[in-house]
């Protein structure tokens, strides 16, 4: 349960940790725009971008493994967009094509391979690679074998544009997620919240109360571990009464979920009521001015970081407009 906590902070002492959270948030935003500005055919630019990211990770002493863990939940999305492009994007010159033979036996053979993949994937550590092997295997079966009666044939064609766009979308996503991971890894949640509050200040003109939003985020951060712990206890309490969360028919499943959710809701209502009382009793007035214990300090490092980010943005805009 504890692994759910997204955007975990990992203590460290590189320059990334010494930066003001405002700088980090604004830089993240600026760099994201810069990545989107890179035109589709500017391979060199994209490689420079990737190079810069790797440099950032190295100087910032951020472990690549952590970044990979941050990327993993997105792998499915990445591969899906890539495969989608390959299959359906028919622009640009053909790069490679394979004939596919559809016969009953061929399809059964392919299906067997897919089933084999489904049942064995949990034993394989590198799931992505294993998925790729499975896909290649299916293509080889359909391409090489022509068992029995071939009732239809098709073609798998890969176009240059598809490969290019697929690659670019993937790279953009990876860079953006990596940058966000760097932000959350190197910034304490409280600092991140403080930074967000400061960055969102202009929204006050839209009558959005940024301080209140910050308070809500801060209380959520405080209570996430408590709520997870509580959910776990409720699960155990119901398991004690014979609820088997691992098994059960659909009808039982519904009941099981209700037996978890109802106590969760009731306890949370009571908790928020008591918490509101406790906050009010300590002179909290929603919307009133407060002084703050945590204050942010702008260093030279922050100016430098912001300037570098802006230079990168200007660079990528220039390339897009001029080239």
């Amino acid at each position: 349960m504890k692994n759910i906590v997204i955007g975990r902070y990992i203590p460290g002492n590189s320059f990334l940790y010494k930066m003001d959270p405002r700088t980090k948030i604004i830089s993240l935003f600026v760099l994201m725009v810069a990545v989107f500005m890179i035109p589709r055919d500017a391979f060199e630019m994209m490689f420079i971008g990737i190079g810069l990211i790797v440099l950032l990770l190295l100087i910032g002493k951020i472990s690549i493994k952590r970044v990979y863990l941050g990327l993993r939940p997105l792998m499915f999305l990445l591969i899906f967009t890539f495969v989608f492009q390959i299959l359906f994007n028919r622009q640009g010159p053909e790069l490679q094509s394979w004939d596919l033979n559809y016969s009953f036996l061929n399809i059964i053979a392919a299906a067997v391979l897919v089933l084999f993949w489904i049942f064995t994937k949990k034993y394989v550590r590198t799931k992505i690679l294993y998925f790729a092997f499975m896909l290649v295997g299916v293509i080889i079966i359909l391409n090489q074998l022509s068992l029995g009666n071939v009732f239809s044939t098709g073609q798998l064609v890969i176009h240059e544009e598809a490969l290019l766009i697929g690659f670019f979308i993937m790279m953009r996503l990876i860079i953006i997620v990596t940058l966000s991971t760097v932000l959350t890894l190197s910034t304490k949640p409280t600092d991140l919240n403080l930074g967000l509050e400061a960055v969102m200040k202009p929204l006050k003109f839209l009558r959005i109360n940024t301080e209140e939003i910050a308070m809500i985020i801060s209380i959520s951060l405080r209570y996430i571990p408590t709520l997870l712990d509580e959910a776990n206890k409720i699960m155990l309490a119901q398991a004690s009464r014979g609820v088997d969360f691992a098994e059960g028919k659909l009808k039982d499943k519904v009941m099981q979920i209700i037996s978890l959710l109802v106590p969760m809701f009731i306890i949370s209502f009571k908790r928020s009521d008591e918490l509101a009382n406790a906050m009010e009793a300590r002179c909290f007035i929603p919307g009133a001015t407060r002084t703050r214990l945590h204050q942010l300090f702008w260093n030279r490092l922050d100016t430098v970081a912001l300037v570098v980010s802006l230079i990168i943005l200007i660079g990528s805009i220039t390339v897009r407009v001029v080239v």
Binding site: L236, A237, S240, I258, P263, I267
Partner: peptide, 10 residues
């Protein structure tokens, strides 16, 4: 029986 009845009543 858990400490808080709220954990099980639903």
């Amino acid at each position: 029986v858990f400490q808080f009845p709220e954990y099980q009543l639903f």
